[in-house]
Amino acid sequence: MSFSVLIVTFFTWMILTSFTDVKELIVGFFVSLVVSIILKRFYGIRFDFKFPVRIIKFIFIYLPVFIWQMLKANFDVAVRVLNPSLPLNPGFVKIKTNLKKDAAKLALANSITLTPGTLTLDIEDDELIIHWIDVKTLDEKEKKEKIAGVFERILKGVYE
């Protein structure tokens, strides 16, 4: 079993149920045990000396940027939907990322999906395929900067 997954799962269970009820805690422990045994082959969280730094970076640098971008995305799409002429200029574009780890790529893809008018379709090695609701440019560098720029720089600091 994977000990780190056990801790995280059990802690999540405690927040969702209760910290004091013994019955809940026993059931939660067994559920987390099963989950951590199943996940052993796929996933482990490394707790090393950099871990607190990464958590702090994630919460104080990544989250504010992410929330701001998400709000902008929502208003952008809301304005498009409410506009009578339905301004759309969609297309599928490909961008290259220089993130290496799978977890980092997942975070990048998720962030892209939740930002203005972009939806990740697929990841092939280091290329992300993105459906862009308003294709502004086809230049390799510019489109990457517009879609993923900020997030990629921050996530590189958080995960690598």
Partner: peptide, 19 residues
């Protein structure tokens, strides 16, 4: 309801419903 195809509908569905 208003978007023309699957992909744009998914865009509207994901973005607006997350917030």
């Amino acid at each position: 309801f208003r978007m023309p195809d699957v992909y744009n509908r998914l865009q509207a569905g994901t973005k607006a419903t997350t917030l």
